[in-house]
Simulated scan of single mutants.
Amino acid sequence: MMELTVTGLHASHGRTPALFGVDLSITEGGSCCVLGRNGVGKTSLMNAIMGVLPTREGTVTLDGRDITRMPPWERVRLGLGYIPQERTGFAHLTVAENLRVVLETRPGAKRSDVDDVLDLFPRLKPLLKRAAGFLSGGQRQQLAIARALLTKPKILLLDEPTEGIQPSIVAEIEEAIVAFHDRDGLGILLAEQYVEMALRMAERYIVLEAGQVVSAGATAELSAEDAGKLLAI
């Protein structure tokens, strides 16, 4: 079973420190949410784990293998998937082309893999010939998640997947991620301000404040008072 471990992680944006000694771990099939206000380091943590943001100190290991200095695409090949906050994709390509580009980069991929992710996001099916740049925010997010799932990750990182999305689409996204988690044993590391959803989806949580972990534990063991404090973040 694959395990992602972050130990004593420090990272900076240029000369501006962003993370200070962050520790966390998640196993394939497990789930953890990263909570905190805007600007506390949630995105920096995700980017550092994926190699988008260089690490100053500390280590990131995957199945005991040190990947701290490994480029992002190698981390993807080893089993990490990432859905950044920006909902990246190829705006000039159609939905179908965006999916096919990802599929063709994975050895052993099958056309049925596309059908599987489209079953999770049926709203995308009538939009396959539409350029991704003309999708709504919720549709772009569903496409971003579908693209990430096509890489067949063992552990998936999601950075604020519900930001700016209407509630009905948020519910569909949550349902799809949970379905993949339950069916394929996908590990989930979720950075999210929508605390109610994050706590529903995750077995464990950490709270960041000014780039440091100030609280961590099992979501099932949260008292009503503690849950109230988290909901007020």
Rank of each mutant, 00 (worst) to 15 (best):
Thr59Phe: 01
Lys125His: 00
Leu127Gly: 00
Met46Asp: 06
Pro161Thr: 11
Lys154Met: 11
Arg147Asp: 14
Leu189Lys: 07
Arg111Ala: 15
Gln193Phe: 03
Ala109Asn: 05
Leu190Cys: 05
Ile233Met: 13
Ala198Phe: 04
Glu175Asn: 14
Thr162Val: 11
Asp115Tyr: 01
Glu203Tyr: 00
Val34Asp: 08
Glu28Phe: 02
Pro167Phe: 10
Pro54His: 12
Gly58Tyr: 06
Glu225Thr: 13
Asp184Cys: 09
Glu174Lys: 13
Tyr194Phe: 15
Gly36Asn: 06
Leu80Lys: 12
Leu135Asp: 04
Ser168His: 13
Trp73Ala: 11
Ala144Lys: 01
Gly81Ile: 05
Val102Met: 04
Leu103Gly: 02
Leu4Lys: 05
Phe134Tyr: 05
Gln141Ile: 03
Gly41Leu: 06
Arg130Phe: 00
Glu172Leu: 13
Leu190Gln: 03
Met201His: 13
Val170Glu: 10
Glu57Phe: 04
Cys32Gly: 01
Leu128Ala: 05
Leu158Arg: 07
Gly51Lys: 08
Leu118Ile: 02
Thr68Pro: 05
Glu196Cys: 01
Gln139Cys: 03
Ser215Asp: 15
Leu199Thr: 14
Leu222Trp: 10
Gly211Leu: 05
Ile145Glu: 09
Ile155Trp: 02
Glu163Ile: 14
Ser223Arg: 09
Lys154Ile: 09
Glu74Gly: 00
Gly36Gln: 07
Leu53Arg: 03
Tyr205Met: 12
Val6Gln: 07
Cys32His: 06
Gln85Asn: 03
Pro72Asp: 08
Gly81Val: 03
Gln142Val: 02
Ala227Cys: 11
Asn38Pro: 10
Arg204Trp: 02
Met1Phe: 00
Ile26Leu: 13
Leu127Phe: 00
Asn47Ile: 05
Glu163Asp: 10
Arg106Thr: 07
Ser168Leu: 14
Glu57Ile: 01
Asn98Lys: 03
Ala220Thr: 13
Asn47Pro: 01
Gln212Asn: 12
Arg69Cys: 14
Ala224Asp: 15
Val170Leu: 12
Leu199Tyr: 08
Phe20Asp: 08
Gly228Leu: 09
Lys129Asn: 12
Glu28Pro: 01
